[in-house]
């Protein structure tokens, strides 16, 4: 449940909720928590293939206009555009 300090910096949280300018490190992948059209295994595989693995540094560079979606994420030295829905599967600290 959300407590009175929802934005505790050291608390793991989904990348899908991060705002522009956020930067952090990937803590784990939680593909079954994202409400994606892809199956959990498929989503996780794709995320890994695009370099989203534990320990990788990520930064949210840009966000779209409708619902701040999609987001452009810098992961190590690649920029990947993803929708927030799929980014919910990436838990960052």
């Amino acid at each position: 449940m959300t407590n009175s300090k929802p934005t505790d910096a050291n608390q793991p949280r989904p990348l899908g909720l991060a705002r522009r300018g956020y930067s952090g490190v990937i803590h784990r992948l939680a593909a079954d928590e994202a409400n994606s059209a892809l199956s959990a295994i498929e989503l996780e595989s794709r995320l890994i293939e695009l370099g989203f693995v534990e320990g990788a540094r990520v930064k949210v560079l840009h966000e779209g206009i409708v619902g701040r979606d999609p987001i452009a994420v810098r992961i190590e030295n690649v920029t990947i555009a993803v929708r927030r829905r799929e980014a919910m599967a990436v838990i960052v600290v």
Binding site: N35, S36, A37, L38, L43, R46, L50, P70, A72, V78, T79, I80, A81, V82, R83, R85, E86
Partner: peptide
């Protein structure tokens, strides 16, 4: 009723 297809693209 289906969830929208994902979008993942390298820029």
């Amino acid at each position: 009723d289906d969830a929208p297809a994902p979008f993942m693209l390298e820029l």
